[in-house]
Design a protein around this nucleic acid. Structure first.
Length: 486
RNA sequence: GGGGCGUUCGUCUAGCGGCCCAGGACACCGCCCUCUCAAGGCGGAGAUCAGGGGUUCAAAUCCCCUACGCCCUACCA
């Protein structure tokens, strides 16, 4: 189907998937969905040395969590497979041989160390390193006999320019003389990225190559291979990079960077997508919270930024809070459950779903991450028997007034069976006034008695949820312990 | 050293020649609401649009130069 949009996300299994990788995947996916095209995942496992077991699983898990689905790739297969480059070695070998026979590539017999920065700085010209390009037939035969390890280099044109019309950056061009003869086949029989990416993008009929900006400098190499092979070049779009707060490329030392950490910390996938898309793309001059459908509908490359963005964890947190508040209490309860099962003391499990649904609204506007729930929710399940009873005494009160306040409240609570929060408030308000205590003082005492804490959700709504039995027994306990302590 | 990309409030961004002595959002500060904490509402502070030259009646927006940042310059992707 000519003209069909086919984009790919091509991760290398060299570590845990981080925000940068995933953001690239997101943009590709959004682009595909916007155009009704295909989103393909292809695993670029051509570096056997850096391969980290489990990274692909983590990557796919991250995509699944964010609801980024792929039309072709690992697990789902597809007509252009295999989607692992390590299973396509013959393809690259044939192409490399073809390039050699065409004169676009040559065997190199040099033994070279990886040049460090100082070496690179001293280097006079890009292709001064290797002389094998101009070897005679005779020299080649001799070297071949004496050596089994060799690589294949691409023979870059020594003059002319290579241009690309990047969909985000516009016309960019390089003088070919500034580009060196890079390696396309390694001595272990695996291709380098440059050959493999060009081969597969062509074979898989990729229409748009959308990748991070760090790839822009190698685009002329890819274009040269494409030309040598007689391929039709895809469109290119180089996405802005994501940096840490210190403006350096995002890495582990910036704290949480792996997508899985965000899942574990209780970020919502919807919030995560919304936030990540705003790193380099915007809808207009004001809209920030958007449904994924709205994003898909409006996702065009002309709204992608050119400059790198710094990952701002504070804003992500804010956005996550917004998403939490937008949920219905039932949805929230459902989302909280796995975190409670993970973090709550085992003797509090299993959590009653119905009870949790009644608790959820009280926590909803007080948390920004799902993993905060376990720390805040314990007093809904059991009384804190250890709290310091001195915290019962509010500002401007003494032990006597505190004790009588407690006793009066206990009496009230004992006497009623109507635990609707409006009724409780009405009743205790009267009692507080009778005792000449401000609401702040009186309710402050009651809060500590009910929860053992100075901070909690609204008092009466909480009592309603906790219920009469638990509330009354906590007040009894508070009275006893406070009296004893005195 | 060479090559490339980028540069609007601390941060994410809007802006594609006049609507901008620059708009929104996060964070920050203040006020309001209020039983605590939040949430919410209102308001404030914060950007000589990196700097300098042009072009134009008019420039954050177009052109040139400089500075700075970042990326590439690996048998890593």
């Amino acid at each position: 189907m000519p003209g069909e949009v086919r984009v790919r996300f091509a991760p290398s299994p060299t570590g845990l998937p981080h925000i940068g990788n995933i953001r690239t995947a997101l943009f590709n996916w959004l682009f595909a969905r916007h155009h009704g095209g295909k989103f393909i995942v292809r695993v670029e496992d051509t570096d056997q040395v850096r391969l980290v077991p489990g990274s692909i699983e983590a990557m796919l898990e991250g995509l699944r969590w964010l609801n980024i689905d792929w039309n072709e790739g690992p697990e789902v297969g597809g007509p252009y497979g295999p989607y692992f480059q390590s299973e396509r070695l013959d393809v690259y070998q044939n192409l490399a041989d073809r390039l050699v026979s065409q004169g676009n590539a040559y065997h190199c017999y040099c033994v070279q160390e990886r040049p460090d920065q100082a070496t690179r700085d001293r280097r006079a010209s890009a292709s001064a390193d290797c002389k094998c390009r101009h070897l005679t037939q005779e020299q080649i035969s001799k070297l071949k006999a004496g050596q089994d390890s060799k690589v294949i280099r691409f023979a870059m044109p020594e003059e002319g320019v290579t241009k690309v019309n990047d969909l985000i950056r516009g016309e960019v061009e390089w003088r070919n003389e500034t580009l060196n003869d890079f390696i396309i086949m390694k001595s272990d029989g695996f291709p380098t990225y440059h050959l493999a990416v060009v081969a597969d993008d062509n074979l898989m009929e990729i229409s748009h190559v959308m990748r991070a900006e760090e790839w822009l400098p190698s685009t002329p190499r890819h274009l040269q291979i494409i030309e040598a092979l007689g391929y039709e070049p895809p469109k290119f779009a180089h996405l802005p990079m994501i940096m840490g707060p210190d403006r350096a490329k995002l890495s582990k030392r910036h704290g949480a960077t792996a997508i899985g950490e965000y899942q574990d910390e209780g970020y919502l996938p919807e919030a995560m997508c919304n936030f990540m898309v705003l790193l380099g793309w915007s809808l207009d001059d004001k809209t920030e919270i958007m449904s994924i459908q709205t994003i898909i509908d409006n996702f065009t490359l002309d709204r992608v930024t050119k400059s790198a963005a710094i990952f701002d964890q504070e804003k992500l947190l804010w956005m996550n809070g917004m998403y939490i508040r937008e949920m219905t209490p039932d949805q929230l309860a459902g989302r909280m459950m796995p975190f409670l099962e993970r973090d709550l003391p085992k003797d509090l499990l299993p959590v009653d779903e119905e009870y949790l649904r009644r608790i959820a609204p009280l926590l909803q506007e007080r948390i920004k991450r799902l993993d905060e729930v376990a720390k805040q929710i314990d007093y809904f399940f059991r009384a804190d028997e250890e709290f310091d009873t001195e915290t019962l005494v509010q500002k401007g009160m003494d032990r006597d007034t505190t004790l009588s306040a407690l006793k009066a409240a206990l009496e009230d609570l004992n006497a009623t069976d109507d635990f609707h929060h409006e009724k409780l408030e009405e009743m205790l308000n009267v009692t507080g006034e009778r005792l000449s205590l401000s609401r702040r003082q009186f309710f402050g005492v009651l809060r500590v008695a009910a929860t053992g804490r100075a901070v909690s959700p609204p008092l009466f709504e909480m009592m309603e949820v906790i219920g009469k039995d638990r509330t009354v027994s906590r007040f009894k306990n508070a009275v006893e312990r406070f009296s004893a302590a005195g």
